[in-house]
């Protein structure tokens, strides 16, 4: 069964059609990577799935149920988490308050919190600190931790390595591998090496359309395809 299926999704921003025809399926479990050049429509695709930018046509099915047009809070409560590119943390609140907000019931599962602290030890250290004072890497950890504080069926993460130091990127990759053991991750990423190390399946967006889907292993082997679709020379 697929975790997510998009079919003919079209989204406008103002008067402009940004997504023309987005159709792809994300299998249950593992990491699905969405690649594409800047401005291709990757972020808008994630925002359309989350309901933050409602599609005006097409279908978005999450675990077989239509979610296109639903309110973001409803989609979130159905088990979809979204980590935006700007991380979306609440700067004036503490790390603990940021995490509490993501639980919805206001209570932590102790074992799960321990697991998160083992993935991101810095969050335990700065638990009562204001989130605005964290470093960029720590903010990204908090953003991801918030998405996994409760079991989610799908976590969408938008460019998590942007502007991060290589050591933090490695730690983040390790954490994602751990998270993907029991959760489906839809990852938008510009760092191809990072994406390749994590992705099982992938798709490429170009000008608001899905132009390629397949396995990451096959795509990583096909340098001509990479060059044509992403102007990559790996």
């Amino acid at each position: 069964m697929n975790a997510l299926e998009l079919s003919g999704v079209q989204t406008r921003i103002g008067r402009y059609d940004v997504l023309h025809d987005i159709s792809f399926s994300v299998p249950e479990g593992g990491v699905f990577v969405l690649l594409g050049r800047n401005g291709a429509g990757k972020t808008t695709t994630l925002r359309s799935i989350m309901g933050l930018r409602a599609p005006h046509a097409g279908s978005v099915r999450f675990r077989g149920e239509e979610i296109a047009g639903l309110h973001p809070s409803v989609i979130a409560r159905r088990g979809v988490a979204f980590v935006p590119e700007d991380m979306g943390i609440f700067r004036s609140l503490t790390v603990a308050e940021n995490m509490t907000l993501a639980t919805l019931r206001g209570r932590f599962d102790g074992a799960r919190l321990e697991w998160i602290h083992s993935l991101f030890p810095a969050l335990k250290t700065f638990w009562n600190s204001t989130a605005g004072g964290l470093s960029g890497g720590q903010k990204q950890m908090l953003a991801v931790a918030r998405a996994i504080i409760e079991p989610r069926a799908l976590i969408m993460i938008d460019e998590p390595t942007k502007g991060l130091a290589p050591a933090i990127v490695d730690a983040m990759a390790e954490a994602f591998r751990e998270i993907a053991r029991d959760t489906t991750i839809l990852l938008v990423e510009q760092n191809f090496e990072f994406a390749r190390s994590l992705g099982r399946d992938m798709g490429v967006i170009e000008d608001g359309r899905i132009v390629h889907t397949g396995t990451m292993a096959a795509f990583a082997e096909d340098r001509a395809l990479q060059t044509r679709l992403l102007s990559l020379s790996v």
Binding site: M50, L52, P72, S73, P84, G88, L101, A102, L104
Partner: peptide, 8 residues
């Protein structure tokens, strides 16, 4: 928007 995306 972030609060909505968290389910509120």
């Amino acid at each position: 928007a972030r609060a909505e995306a968290l389910g509120y």
